[in-house]
Nucleic acid binder design. Structure first.
Ligand code: MN
Ligand code: MN
Ligand code: MN
Ligand code: MN
Lengths: 152, 152
DNA sequence: TCTGATTTGTAGCCGTGGCTACAATTAAGC
DNA sequence: GCTTAATTGTAGCCACGGCTACAAATCAGA
């Protein structure tokens, strides 16, 4: 992560050299990537709690296709960032912030899949591609997607 | 999570437990992420050579918004992977493999931007989002995009 | 030419997210 | 209840891609 800089979330002066503009785009993509893992974990934990009643590290790891050690370390990061908690040997839970994130991420995930399908991408490919694409879709694009899908 | 089975693109047996399906999607996203940096460098180096006549580490770094040390290390990875070469103090060049990658990536980048715009995303947002999205768009999706845009 | 600015390269640090191997704890079965 | 299997956690390794600081090489201008 770059350092905690004061993010001017949309006020990017347009009168900078063009390479600054490009640098800004790359920076956005990097920062989106930095949160992608947190988003996927939040969504998955929420899903597991919803369908299985609990989210245990082993299940999380299996669903993600990583070793349980990796999952546990990533869960530690979620806890550090205030998105999850976990009682010893009793599964992982989402904090209110984590729940909010999960809800947002799930809605976005569905919207992305639906848009892909709407423009002609086969369902299977849409599911695969969306898992990576979702983390780079801005609110502005999401609004456009919703409108395009007639859900404005 | 629909249990569809059409993707013979990779040799993934379609009759596995559903969580294997999900793991497979996450794995795809991770592997796409692993090549994203190479793709951006290849595209950028190609652009710089095309517009400036050469691609020097300092310029690459400025366009990406990273330190020159970071750029030089990433360029070293490109060389390791057979995508670029560089003569001391004389800029970075793409190997044939690197050129091919750059061409593919540039075409894909444009197609993604065009699709986003076509579904109503403002140009600026499309440019920003595409920088991240592009790395996760499969060939299958690309074909669908082209068809949707009437470039089948 | 030579001196100072720019560019390039190197070294070393850090956090992330992979992994394996092993230890400890809990759950299950007999 | 004991033994064994499964789960969870820890430790330690690695590659990657950020960074700063410093060194070396090249380029430009006076
Ligand atoms: Mn995802
Ligand atoms: Mn998702
Ligand atoms: Mn990109
Ligand atoms: Mn690009």
């Amino acid at each position: 992560m770059p350092k905690s800089k004061t993010y001017k979330l949309d006020a990017e002066p347009a009168d900078l050299p063009p390479e600054a503009d490009q640098a800004h785009r790359f920076e956005k993509a990097r920062s989106a990537q930095a949160t992608a893992l947190l988003e996927d974990y939040a969504e998955l934990i929420s899903d597991l709690i919803g369908t299985e009643g609990e989210a245990r590290p082993t299940d999380i790891a299996r669903r993600l296709g990583v070793s349980h050690a990796t999952a546990i370390k990533s869960i530690a990061r979620l806890k550090r960032e205030g998105l999850a908690t976990s009682k010893l040997y009793r599964g992982v839970f989402l904090t209110p912030a984590g729940e909010m994130l999960a809800r947002r991420v799930r809605a976005r995930h569905r919207l992305v899949v639906d848009l892909l399908v709407a423009v002609g991408v086969p369902q299977d490919a849409a599911e695969v591609d969306a898992e990576g694409i979702e983390h780079h879709v801005s609110e502005e694009s999401l609004r456009a997607f919703a409108k395009f899908l007639g859900r404005a």
